[in-house]
Design a protein around this nucleic acid. Structure first.
Length: 748
DNA sequence: GGTGTGTAGGTTTTT
DNA sequence: CCTACACACC
């Protein structure tokens, strides 16, 4: 294996240093994945069994890609036996094996955030707590933080500082809610995301033999994106690696962007204190981007105080300067981006998939989508609602969940009356109260004869029995049929598919298609399985809640422009990157400008955004942005003035960036009329100005297009050079044309 | 017990 | 702007 053929000197050293603790500080685009890949291949090459290697990544996608590449290097027979995946998925796998020690069933359900929120809501209702004080999101966040810091409900309640805090913030019941929440999940045989880490810790802490077993198993441990690990993850890694200390962590403190979910940047900053004789490798040569991008990113990140010193450089050839543009409104910003992509596709012969549009919040995707649709540019959105979070999908999955784990109360509540079976709110209230008083799951209560007579009427009991019978039939099916067959049977016999099919609205059709797509994916799961794979429904269901949009193969395959938040772009790279919405209170977010550390995290986020790009970065901001249907004035982001301007081609009036003084802010009304006026203003056509120099185009003009024929201009939008005309052609119909490309001759 | 309508409130970022 | 939930009616 000739490493030097594929790697630079530092990279080779990092790969070959296999024994003892090491840390690789990898600047953006410095070939971090390459090092990890070769390191694992190298270990296997040296004779280490893949069963003894644990590699923890940040996303499933990263794991899958790395596994594929390792497979190319050492053969698939080896790579498939690696323990490689996200923290959550690897530990879920271990917990399923060891679940009995913790009192959970091995087919425990994994609750996603949506499920957790439902549990919180129903608790608040039963306890008559005001959900405006105890906002479900806040309660959940609080519980999550506790778990990430390994605070059990008891410890939470006994901690004087925390109790004082909760009382001061007028939420004294938080600890009780935490305890109750945990009890409910346990009774339901369910773990939320944080439980997967929390329980893994408990498992290793309380069972020496198990700890020993996994320490012995995972003799070589690699952790990717170490800067984004939280305390809980940190402890697990520490425990597992304690015996052999063959641990290699890889990360970049400058790209730590997940503190809001408990990630602790100190984990990477302090790594050298946690182990003796840590070997540190710094990868500083960037292979991804042009010097302009690298230097601009460097100049930005220098503003941060907290960081490991490093000097990222590149030997790549010069590229374009970073382009900075301003737009009147968010919609215009989006149109500019779309036109620019349209233009670059032509001039650089780029593919749709070479482009990424990044933004700070998911809500910003809408304007971008509209703009891309107008120009017929195909796109995919990552993030927001993933496929598995759609209501119709969750409903069908809830049936699966209940069949696999009947104690799953949340699943039962979700579907016992969907489609409608005459088991309504009153009945459910009674059942809930009864089950809670006996500390049993709902299924326990309804599935055994004789337990309901005292609280419910005869007709209702019959309906409930019908439901129980149906679920039990499905359970029998699971024993003999594969996931797809069971899934299809459930979708049809429950009437779910029929219900969707009856709805002929656009949304209804799409819901029906989504269900079909889920069934297709189950078929695919069954068909593509290897001989020894488990193709049962429980097996199919296991990791579903841990999948995200990024794992959608279909999406990845398409040649489409990529839309996502900057967070979601972490670890990815694209030739052309648009970073949009660079405005104060949006990026940096309004909620983060209060403290230095949060502001630094926003800056790191911007750093991540810039360093995704290989060839070109386009930055933009809007002077007005819609928020909840209203236009609001906005100012350029402070981050723009922090980039060294020698790398930037500033196409905005300089006053926008340098002068912080708010200019005369136009009112909403004046902007609207102003905007309208500009739309209607006669404009010069690109061809006209070239050829005749004097002709102007305006709405109402009749024009001729060489392909579409005669037509009438309805509207002209945007600003030069990106003006667009909507033309109603006599034969070709209504078209939208870019004036700088379309050759229009004025007839009258 | 099911269904439709009005309105209040909500946006960081996600495994 | 959109969604989720409360309330009123069938």
């Amino acid at each position: 294996m000739d490493l030097s053929q594929h790697l630079n000197e530092t990279q080779v050293q990092a790969v070959e240093h296999t024994e003892g603790p090491s840390m690789v500080i990898a600047g953006a685009g410095s070939g971090k994945t390459r090092v990890l890949t070769f390191r694992i291949a190298y270990l296997i090459h040296k004779g280490i069994s893949p069963f003894n290697i644990l590699a923890l990544t940040f996303t499933n996608k990263a794991a899958r890609e790395m596994k594929d590449r390792i497979g190319d290097l050492v053969g698939e027979t080896y790579s498939r036996n690696l323990w490689m995946g996200t923290f959550h998925s690897v530990f879920a796998r271990i917990l399923r094996i060891e679940s009995e020690l913790l009192g959970y069933p091995n087919n425990f359900t994994i609750y996603d955030t949506d499920d957790s929120k439902r549990v919180i809501k129903s608790m608040l209702k039963e306890r008559l707590l005001d959900d405006k004080v105890y906002k479900p999101n806040l309660v959940l966040h609080r519980i999550s933080m506790a778990k990430n810091n390994l605070l059990s409900p008891e410890a939470y309640l006994n901690n004087a500082t925390i109790q004082k805090e909760d009382i001061q913030s007028k939420k004294p019941e938080l600890g009780v809610l935490y305890k109750e929440y945990q009890k409910r999940l346990f009774r339901s045989g369910a773990m939320d995301f944080d439980d997967l880490l929390f329980n893994m810790n408990i498992l290793l802490r309380d069972h020496d033999d198990i700890l020993y077993k996994y320490q012995d198993k995972f003799r070589y441990i690699l952790v990717d994106e170490y800067q984004d690990t939280n305390f809980s993850q940190y402890l697990i890694v520490k425990a597992l690696s304690a015996r052999f200390e063959n641990i290699c962590v890889v990360g970049d403190d400058a790209q730590s962007i997940y503190s809001f979910r408990g990630a602790n940047i100190q984990n990477i900053l302090n790594f050298q204190r946690d182990y003796d004789n840590v070997k540190v490798f710094k990868l500083e040569q960037n292979y991804r981007s042009t010097p302009q991008i690298v230097e601009a990113a460097n100049s930005l990140i220098r503003q941060n105080v907290e960081q490991i010193k490093k000097d990222v450089y590149t030997q790549n050839p010069d590229g374009e300067k970073i382009k900075l543009t301003s737009a009147i409104s968010d919609n215009e910003e989006a149109m500019n981006v779309a036109y620019s992509i349209f233009h670059l596709k032509n001039t650089k012969r780029a593919h749709n998939r070479d482009f990424a549009i990044l933004y700070r919040t998911n809500a910003q995707s809408r304007a971008m989508e509209d703009a891309l649709r107008k120009l017929n540019i195909p796109y995919v959105i990552y993030g927001g609602l993933s496929f598995y979070q759609r209501k119709e999908i969750k409903d069908l999955l809830a049936y699966f969940r209940l069949v696999v784990n009947t104690d799953d109360d949340d699943a039962l509540k979700r579907i016992i009356n969907y489609p409608a079976r005459g088991i309504g709110a009153t009945t459910m209230d009674k059942l809930n109260a009864q089950a809670a008083s006996m500390d049993q799951s709902l299924w326990w209560l309804i599935s055994q004869p004789g337990k309901l007579q005292s609280i419910l009427g005869k007709a209702t009991i019959n309906r409930i029995n019908g439901f129980v019978d149906m679920i039990e039939t499905f359970q029998k099916l699971v024993e003999s049929k594969d996931a797809y067959e069971v899934g299809r049977t459930i979708a049809t016999t429950t009437g779910l598919l029929r219900e969707m099919n009856n709805d002929k609205s656009v949304e209804g059709v799409s819901r029906y298609e989504n269900l079909q797509e889920l069934l297709n994916s189950m078929k695919d799961f069954v068909d593509s399985a290897l001989e020894e794979d488990d193709i049962s429904l429980p097996s199919y269901l296991q990791d579903i809640p841990l999948l995200t949009d990024q794992d959608d193969e279909e999406k990845n395959k398409k040649d489409s422009v990529n839309l996502m938040t900057i967070h979601a772009s972490k670890g990815l790279e694209f030739p052309y990157v648009y970073v949009t919405g660079l405005e104060e209170n949006l990026f940096p977010s309004m909620l983060s400008i209060g403290s230095r550390s949060e502001l630094e995290e926003e800056r790191r986020l911007f750093y991540v955004a810039l360093t995704r790009a290989e060839k070109e970065v386009h930055l933009s901001f809007a002077q007005m942005r819609y928020k909840w249907g209203n236009l609001n004035a906005s100012e350029p982001s402070r981050f723009l003035s922090e980039i060294d301007m020698q790398y930037v081609d500033n196409q905005t009036a300089t006053s926008h960036i340098q002068a912080r003084e708010p200019r005369n802010k136009p009112t909403e009304k004046s902007i609207k009329t102003d905007w309208k006026k500009k739309n209607l203003r006669p404009v010069r056509s690109a061809s006209a100005s070239k050829n005749e120099g004097t002709t102007t185009l305006a709405p109402g003009n009749t024009v001729r297009h060489e392909r579409f024929g005669k037509g009438k201009i309805l509207m002209i939008e945007g600003y030069p050079p990106n003006q667009k005309a909507t033309v109603d052609f006599e034969t070709a119909g209504r078209k939208q044309l870019l004036l700088k490309f379309a050759r229009l001759d004025v007839i009258s």
